[in-house]
């Protein structure tokens, strides 16, 4: 939080991340990355307790995103991810249909979910990413615990970095009211991100 006080333009910048990614003139040090959702070296996974007895896992198959990452100044990094909510996949067609319905994601009304970072608290190779998650038409501040996994040249002439992030959200906070029982009010999100640096 202290970072955002010291760095007031961060919010404005966050709003223009998508635009920023397109701009040619970027600071020499920070590099812009496109999340490799084409080669699928990234995933947006979730898990929720079933009755309190086990974990039910699933993921969103379709998403896109960009981030900027500067090894010298990681606190200035930014990320934005857009998720196609209809691509929810829990490996069970009838359940996925229910998850897309008005009881849960209501994908015809809210076809995309979005995360846009606002600030970073960096410690060594981890960070707490503050940002706004828009899901089911509701925008809320969330924090994602993120670890830098690795980075470097790939064998095909590109440069990649990768991160792993996790967070927990309460469904009711985002207006999803279907009662799955007392043990299933929160969903854990697990994000695996690999980005290819723009040339």
């Amino acid at each position: 939080m202290t970072l955002s006080f010291k760095n007031p333009p961060v919010k404005k910048m966050a709003a223009s991340i998508m635009l920023g990614a397109l701009l040619l003139a970027t600071p020499a040090t920070a590099a812009d990355y496109v999340i490799d959702s084409k080669g699928m070296h990234a995933s947006v996974n979730f898990r929720i307790k079933h009755l309190g007895y086990s974990w039910l896992t699933g993921r969103f198959d379709k998403f896109t995103g960009t981030y900027s990452f500067d090894e010298a100044n990681p606190a200035a990094s930014k990320i934005s991810v857009e998720i196609d909510t209809a691509s929810v996949n829990s490996n069970h067609a009838a359940r996925d249909k229910h998850l897309r319905s008005g009881d849960f994601l209501d994908v015809s009304k809210f076809p995309t979910a979005k995360f846009v970072s606002t600030s970073m608290e960096v410690t060594d190779k981890s960070a707490i990413v503050h940002g706004k998650l828009t899901l089911h038409g509701v925008t809320k501040d969330i924090t994602i615990k993120s670890d830098y996994v690795g980075g470097g040249k790939d064998p095909w002439g590109g440069f990649r970095t990768g991160f792993s992030g996790s967070t927990k959200i309460a469904l009711a906070d985002f207006g999803i009211k279907f009662n799955l029982g007392p043990a299933s009010k929160e969903v854990e999100l697990q994000l695996e991100i690999e980005g290819v640096r723009n040339k």
Binding site: N91, H92, A93, A94, D96, K97
Partner: peptide
């Protein structure tokens, strides 16, 4: 098909 398109 609602039930079986996932292979079940």
């Amino acid at each position: 098909f609602i039930t079986s398109v996932d292979g079940s």
